[in-house]
Design a protein around this nucleic acid. Structure first.
Length: 560
RNA sequence: GCGCCCGUAGCUCAGUCGGAUAGAGCAACGGUUUCCUAAACCGUGGGCCGGGGGUUCGAGUCCCUUCGGGCGCACCA
């Protein structure tokens, strides 16, 4: 059980009882008990935990918060809860609790017992789906896809540890207009390579990688595509290219540490008639009208700026229509929570997609769209311009090649999704404590190094029951234990607030506390009992760092 | 023009439901050190949380307004 949660719950119980007691003794008068919280005060001088019940009750009880706090403190029996050493009213009306360190001393045994599962919250019996990257299978993966990948996979890991049943999904945009253009581009390149003077489509895919793909097609088909109806030729080329591109995407993402549970094809939605079906459903519900030959969805009724076309005048459904069918399908699959990670340039779609779900009778709040801002690449101080025209664009493969998967993943999740990300390639490669990834990994390696050193002295790692954990009474040691104790709660918060970057910060903070501790105290020392206790502290620090890095998809090396 | 996101220390950024004296890293300045993993460690300075108004016991956080930056506003995706 989450150690912090455990303490908070017993303190909350204490406060609830005090409230009832005070009401019973006619010291306070209120109808409903306030929805107070037990929190960790920012200031150390304000105790270990604090409660805001008195402030929340002020209006109802018609009494100054400070006075209420004092009444409650008077009612709480000092010795009524083991480990509570002092309770006092403070500040504007806080109730501060000062605890003995006993609750922290329970932490190491718990961490050792749970091992790789330390941090995991109880099962929620809820299914959540995270859909991310979903890059067009018409080109390379770029930095936006990379950030989305790191964020999505980390978020999925967080949700998993937070007790959800998680599925990762990739939506393959293998239908629609862009795919047509892609096919035309392939055909044009093919004919050009075969010596025909055909002009390349105006908005075609002009990248070098498309030419590569066409070379591969020629390798497979030689001249056999020449004497063929254009439509047939395009179909063959398209199927080949999509397969190749999807394989490429799959491989690259696997190199990045990402494995999907489901690869969902947009084309399948069209083929099974689900796109037309969903348009019909919306029509029946009265959210569709015809204008200038096209079918429109009344998204403006759901807070969108304007209505949106579902089916063009030429009879072809839009991407939006397919996307509605897709999201309907997600809900039909029974997910309690559906999360999408989109680039901020798609924010305009949020309102209408939620609106469409609402129109279909689903809860729009169950659809969560995490928007992420764009990425700017730097090399040292100078920005790396990402231009397809000049060919200076950096793909995810190249990034992994240059800085490594660990540094790339960490850097992408380090910042809040809604903050622009400056990715410094030089910093990410740097082997110094200034590099955040290195800083955290080094903490882990350092612990392993101490263990190796201990082994060289013939000191084995202690088992929990042979250690007197109360010897860990240095400020630094207690701070480390407290941080470790907070890990499960941190996971819960990161999940609840859909904030993958919190995990990176947590692990940085933890590593910082460890480095600082390491610099001040000898683990391997002349006092055998103290040495055992400190080795145990390092063991649980290591487990927590390992688990944290695991969530981030970053390796925890034993040596650096 | 309308909508969304951002604006916090010199720089890059944190800051769960509103909580007590707003934090971290880097840079700057001062000092210590060569010790289980390596130029590391300790300390100091630095802020009208873009501006203004409001809500309340209490606002970086919520509401309104204004300024600045990014993005979006197709029968593209």
């Amino acid at each position: 059980m989450d150690p912090v949660q455990k303490v908070k719950m017993s303190l909350a119980q204490l406060v609830s009882e005090a409230l009832e007691e005070a009401r019973g003794q006619k010291l306070l008068s209120f109808a409903t008990a306030p929805d107070f919280v037990i929190e960790v005060p920012r200031e150390k001088g304000h105790g270990d935990f604090a409660c805001n019940a008195a402030m929340l009750l002020a209006r109802q009880a018609r009494m100054a918060p400070r006075q209420i706090a004092e009444i409650l403190v008077g009612v709480i029996k000092a010795g009524s809860l083991a480990g509570v050493e002092k309770v006092e009213a403070a500040g504007a009306g806080f109730i501060n609790f000062y605890l003995s360190n006993d609750w922290l001393f329970e932490v190491p045994a718990l961490v050792v017992k749970m091992g790789g599962d330390y941090g995991r919250n109880e099962s929620k019996n809820q299914r959540v789906q995270v859909e991310f990257v979903s890059a067009n299978p018409t080109g390379n993966l770029h930095m936006g896809n990379a950030r989305g990948g790191a964020l999505g996979d980390t978020l999925a890991n967080i949700l998993d540890r937070a007790g959800y049943n998680v599925e990762r999904e990739f939506y393959i945009n293998d239908a629609g207009n862009q795919v047509e253009v892609f096919a035309e581009s392939l055909e044009a390149r093919y004919l050009q390579l075969k010596g025909f003077d055909v002009k390349f489509p105006e908005d075609g895919y002009a990248g070098q990688d498309v030419i590569e793909t066409v070379r591969n097609i020629i390798g497979a088909y030689q001249d056999r595509l020449l004497d063929m109806e254009s439509a047939d030729r395009r179909q063959i080329m398209l199927n080949f290219a999509l397969t190749e591109k999807i394989d490429y995407i799959k491989n690259t993402l696997e190199n990045f540490g990402i494995k999907y549970d489901v690869w969902f094809s947009e084309r399948s939605l069209h083929e099974t008639g689900q796109v037309d079906l969903v348009i019909e459903q919306l029509k029946e519900k009265g959210y569709v009208y015809e204008k200038e030959g096209a079918l429109w969805f009344k998204s403006s009724e759901f807070g969108d700026e304007k209505d949106e076309v579902l089916k063009r005048a030429n009879g072809i459904p839009t991407y939006f229509a397919a996307d509605i069918a897709y999201h309907r399908d997600k809900f039909k699959r029974g997910f309690d929570w559906v999360i999408n990670i989109w680039g901020a340039d798609h924010h305009g779609h949020v309102a209408r997609m939620k609106g469409a779900m609402q129109a279909l009778g689903y809860d729009p709040a169950a659809l969560e769209i995490l928007l992420m801002q764009l990425v700017r690449l730097y090399r040292g101080g100078t920005i790396v311009r990402m231009s397809k025209r000049t060919g200076t664009t950096i793909s995810l493969d190249e990034l992994i090649e240059e800085v490594g998967r660990d540094a790339a993943r960490f850097t992408f999740v380090m910042r809040s999704p809604d903050s622009h990300l400056d990715f410094d390639l030089e910093l990410a490669k740097q082997k110094s404590l200034e590099n955040p990834v290195y800083y955290v990994q080094y903490a882990h390696a350092r612990i392993c190094s101490v263990f190796r050193q201990a082994a060289a002295y013939n000191a084995t790692l202690p088992s929990v029951d042979e250690v007197d954990v109360t010897l860990l009474n240095e400020e630094d040691e207690l701070a480390l234990l407290r941080k470790i104790a907070e890990f499960p709660e941190e996971i819960a918060i990161a999940a609840r607030t859909v904030a993958p970057h919190r995990m990176a910060r947590y692990v940085l903070d933890l590593a910082g506390l460890f480095h600082s501790y390491y610099n001040h105290h000898r683990v391997l020392n002349e006092n055998p009992e103290l040495q055992k206790a400190r080795l145990l502290l390092l063991m649980v620090t290591r487990i927590t760092i390992q688990n944290g890095l695991g969530i981030l998809g970053v390796s925890a090396p034993e040596q650096m």
